[in-house]
Amino acid sequence: MAYLIRRLMLTIPTVLGLTALVFFLLHAVVPSDTVDVLVSFYGINDPELAQQLREEFGLTGSLLSQYADWLGSVLRGDLGASLFTKRSVLEELSRRLPISLELGLGAMLVTLAVAIPAGIISAVKRDGPLDYLLRGGAVLANALPDFWAATLVLVLGSVWFSWAPPLEYRTPWEDLGEHLRLMAVPVLLVAVTPAAALIRLMRSQVLEVLRQDYIRTARAKGLDARRVYGRHVLRNALLPVVTFAGLLLPRLIAGTVIVEQIFGIPGTGRYLLQAIGRLDYPVIQSTNLVIGLLLILVNVAVDISYTWIDPRIRWR
């Protein structure tokens, strides 16, 4: 518990550092600003309008005061609003984050469901045809960029089967069938690359554990294969896998922008990408804050889970 509290307290300076870095990089390093983007074709001839907009957007104070203002709003629970659309960032993230979470979590579940058994099988059947098939497939899948695979699926699906995914995103409450029809393919596509990496990781971990004396002892005691692998091998091989999965989740949530774009999924990745293109400061800053927090919390959860997987591990 003390460890948990200490870890959570450490998130505060981490998050502050992250937000400050993003803020100052955006404002100090990028030579143009939101207003330049907004009035890109007319600003030079209309400095009055540009100044009006800068005042309206709160971009005229010092960088430190702008950062302090933003931080103050965040601490009051206000993540701000898009400078372009005026839509609340909190509202938008409330709508989009669950979609990205679904995409990310779905992909992670598929990854784990496929990669863990495949990795075990590959290790157990080491140097056999199945092992080579699984390893070769993993290398191939790892080499495929997901955006290329997504485009290929769309094009070949269209050419060979006259297939197209549903055109508009619908929530599960609006139309569960359409929702699943839209999300199924992107979830599988997003899962391909991490599953490939995890198969190989799982294989090497299982091989490492299989070499241990306690496994020989377990076999010598007459335990059946199911108990040996399920109780002894899997649990000991899982630690790095849990770390991998923990680090994967935030990437899956925020890094699927291209798949979101291709399939028309209104997720967080697209939201952030558009905001970056427009230099929409509140959206960029607040979305980075949320994703950063998520990453930190997942890391804490991963650390805590170690103690469940391996009771020998105790955090002080």
Partner: peptide, 19 residues
């Protein structure tokens, strides 16, 4: 007017007569 930002998606939807 669905938002369709990807060419492959737009063409697949056209083929399927969704656009």
């Amino acid at each position: 007017l669905p938002v369709v930002m990807d060419t492959a998606q737009a063409e697949a939807q056209f083929k399927a007569k969704n656009i």
